[in-house]
């Protein structure tokens, strides 16, 4: 996969939140094989060094960071957060989230497009967290995005691919655009499904961080992503409604 001119071998992007400990986070990232990890910015008091310790941990992992604008509800909030993230993390990459609804964490796609335009014009390389809506996707591309990140399901639900038809259509419609399924992945089988549909990668966090054994789950996701990717390359059979015997009928004995 190539995003914004960077070759990425791993098809799994991993979030860094909600792990039981920094040590387990580090081991999970290693087990996942992820080359890109998502991070955020939050308030820190002067005496507190949590942010600095976290930054040291991430830097030592050697992974490329993708800062997010999680929790932003307006263009202004998202743009300012992105500007601050660019300085702190020293990257033009930004995972752009502009939330429109607190129950579903559904993106506000109108403000998302506008924020993507503002940030792209300012030199950012935007990874927009969006829906499977084709018209919105087209507007995001026109705004300067070179990658799309449609949701599988609402963030943190673990429901998998809620609208496989819509995602399949999106994949077919934007055949040449790198696309990453972001959010809603709960099981390795969901990740494999996304890869079988032809998506370039999956981005997930809670499914690994909240597993009983995050390190083992990270490994399971890596295997699932690889399996799904290989299956896509192997050109899966077409599904059909009626049964068809796999054992040859020709030469069957007449025993009735």
């Amino acid at each position: 996969m190539q995003v914004y001119g960077v070759d990425i071998a791993s098809r799994l992007l991993l979030g860094t939140a909600q792990y039981p400990s920094p040590t387990i986070l580090g081991e999970a990232v290693q087990a996942s094989g992820a080359e890109i990890v998502t991070v955020s910015l939050r308030r820190e008091s002067g005496g507190d060094q949590h942010g600095q310790a976290f930054w040291t941990l991430i830097r030592d992992m050697g992974a490329r960071v993708l800062p997010n604008t999680a929790g932003c509800h307006t263009v202004k909030e998202a743009v300012t957060t992105a500007q601050m993230a660019r300085e702190v993390f020293d990257t033009n990459w930004i995972k752009l989230e502009v939330i429109g609804d607190n129950d579903t964490l559904c993106p506000n796609v109108f403000d998302l497009v506008e924020a993507a335009r503002v940030l792209s014009e300012d030199g950012f390389e935007v990874f927009p967290y969006t829906t499977e809506d084709l018209v919105v996707a087209e507007h995001l591309l026109q705004a300067g995005c070179k990658v799309l990140m449609p949701w599988g399901a609402p963030i943190g639900t673990g429901l998998g691919l809620n609208n496989a038809y819509g995602l399949r259509t999106m994949r077919a419609h934007f055949a040449d655009v790198p696309m990453i399924i972001d959010a809603g992945i709960g099981l390795p089988s969901h990740a494999a499904h996304a890869m079988e549909l032809g998506f370039d990668a999956v981005l997930l966090n809670t499914a690994v961080a909240r597993a009983g054994d995050p390190v083992a789950m990270a490994r399971a996701f890596a295997q699932a992503v690889e399996a799904g990717s290989t299956a896509r390359s192997a050109d899966p059979m077409e599904a059909r409604d009626m049964a068809s015997p796999s054992t040859p009928v020709l030469g069957k004995a007449s025993l009735g």
């Binding site: 979030g15 860094t16 939140a17 909600q18 792990y19 986070l25 998502t38 991070v39 955020s40 910015l41 939050r42 308030r43 820190e44 002067g46 507190d48 949590h50 942010g51 600095q52 976290f54 930054w55 991430i58 800062p67 997010n68 999680a70 957060t81 601050m84 702190v88 993390f89 963030i155 943190g156 966090n205 809670t206």
Partner: peptide, 10 residues
């Protein structure tokens, strides 16, 4: 004044 530092994120 907002002062933000690196933090875990999804």
């Amino acid at each position: 004044l907002e002062i933000l530092a690196p933090m875990q994120g999804g």
